[in-house]
C-alpha cells in the first residue's frame, strides 16, 4: 500500500519538518509526497527526498492552503492510501482532524513513535504520560511531531504528477504576518535559547536574540514572555506552543512550568540559568548556573561572540 505525506510549508517556504516527515513514514509503504498550495510546483522542486517515489503537486489560491480546500483535495486522494501523514504543525493540525472526520476515521495525532503500521505512541497530559495505541482502521490518518525524527536527505529526482488545483475555500486571508528575526527554525534547531518573563522588557529580551545568534541557535520563549509582548507568539515553546527537541536547550529566567516542559523535555541537554535553585527547570537540567540573568547574559554573549 502507499503512504501519502502532506508536505509542510508556509508563505512560500518548504518547512524543515517535511524532510523529517519522510523519515517518520519510512518503512510504511511506497511514499508519495503531496505539495499543495500557491507556488506548489516551485516548492516541489526542492522536495525530492530520498525514499519518496512520487511527488504530487496541487497549486492553489492561498500561500497557506485553507483547511476546507485542502481537505477536499485529500478526501479525493484518500482511497489509494493506507496512511495519510502530516506534521503536527499549524497546517497539519488544522486539516487532519477534519479530514479524518469526513472519512469516518479516528485520527492519531502528535505521534512520537510509529511502532508498527497500526501502532503508535503519543503524549497526553502535556507529556506527563504516553499513550500506546493500536488501530484497526483501514486507513491511518496521523500527525507526527517532526522534532523527534531526523531529516531525510535529498535523493534522485522522482516523477512529479500535477493534480487539479485546490478549489478556493470559503475563508479569505486578509493578512499574513511573519514574525521578524533571522533565526533558524525553532522546531528543528540544534540549539535553542529560551527566555522567560524575568527579562522584564522587549529591549532586554532582545539580548537573548544576540546570544542565540552567537550560539547559532533559535530563540524560544515562555508563554508569560509572549503574553507580555517580549516575543512573538510563534516563539512560544510548550504544550500550546512549539515542540522542540534540540541537542542543547538553554532556559534563562524560565521557571519550567509543566506546560513549558511539555515543549522541550525531549531536548538532549538542558541547561538552566535562574536565580532560584528550586525552579523546576533547574531540577531537570543537566547543569545549571544560579544567578541573575542581567549579569550572566552579557558575559555569555561576549564569550561566544569572540569564539
Amino acid at each position: 500500500m502507499s503512504v501519502l505525506i502532506l508536505a509542510d510549508h508556509d508563505l512560500g517556504q518548504l518547512s524543515p519538518s517535511t524532510a523529517r516527515l519522510v523519515t517518520a513514514a519510512q518503512g510504511l509503504g511506497d511514499l508519495h509526497l503531496l505539495v499543495a498550495g500557491q507556488g506548489a510546483s516551485a516548492l516541489a522542486a526542492a522536495a525530492h527526498f530520498a525514499g519518496v517515489s512520487k511527488i504530487l503537486v496541487a497549486e492553489g489560491p492561498d500561500a497557506l492552503p485553507t483547511a476546507d480546500s485542502l481537505r477536499a483535495a485529500l478526501v479525493a486522494l484518500a482511497p489509494g492510501y493506507s496512511h495519510i501523514i502530516a506534521a503536527s504543525s499549524s497546517l497539519g493540525r488544522d486539516v487532519i482532524p477534519g479530514l479524518a472526520a469526513r472519512l469516518g476515521v479516528m485520527p492519531v495525532t502528535d505521534v512520537v513513535e510509529i511502532v508498527a503500521p497500526n501502532r503508535f505512541v503519543r503524549p497526553i497530559y502535556a507529556g506527563n504520560a504516553f499513550e500506546h495505541l493500536s488501530s484497526s482502521e483501514p486507513l491511518h490518518i496521523l500527525t507526527v511531531r517532526t522534532s523527534v525524527f531526523t531529516p531525510a536527505p535529498l535523493g534522485a529526482a522522482v516523477p512529479v504528477e500535477t493534480l487539479a488545483p485546490l478549489a478556493p475555500g470559503r475563508v479569505t486571508t486578509l493578512r499574513a504576518e511573519r514574525s521578524a528575526g533571522d533565526f533558524p527554525d525553532l522546531t528543528s534547531a540544534a540549539v535553542v535559547v529560551s527566555g522567560g518573563i524575568a527579562f522584564g522588557s522587549v529591549e532586554k529580551f532582545a539580548a537573548l536574540g544576540d546570544l542565540a545568534t552567537a550560539l547559532g541557535g533559535a530563540v524560544g520563549a515562555t508563554r508569560a514572555a509572549v503574553d507580555a509582548g517580549y516575543a512573538p507568539n510563534d516563539w512560544q515553546v510548550g504544550q500550546t506552543g512549539k515542540i522542540v527537541a534540540p541537542d542543547l536547550y538553554i532556559g534563562i529566567g524560565v521557571s519550567g512550568a509543566l506546560q513549558h516542559l511539555a515543549g522541550m523535555q525531549g531536548a538532549k541537554r538542558i541547561v538552566a540559568i535562574n536565580t532560584d535553585p528550586e525552579a523546576p527547570l533547574v531540577k531537570v537540567a543537566d547543569y545549571a548556573l544560579i544567578g541573575d540573568l542581567v549579569e550572566i547574559v552579557p558575559q555569555l554573549i561576549a564569550a561566544f561572540r569572540k569564539a
Binding site: 508556509d10 497557506l64 504543525s89 499549524s90 493578512r175 499574513a176 504576518e177 512573538p232 507568539n233 510563534d234
Partner: peptide, 9 residues
C-alpha cells in the same frame, strides 16, 4: 496563531 506568526482571515 500559526507557526510563522499570525494569519488574519
Amino acid at each position: 496563531e500559526v507557526d510563522f506568526g499570525r494569519l488574519t482571515q
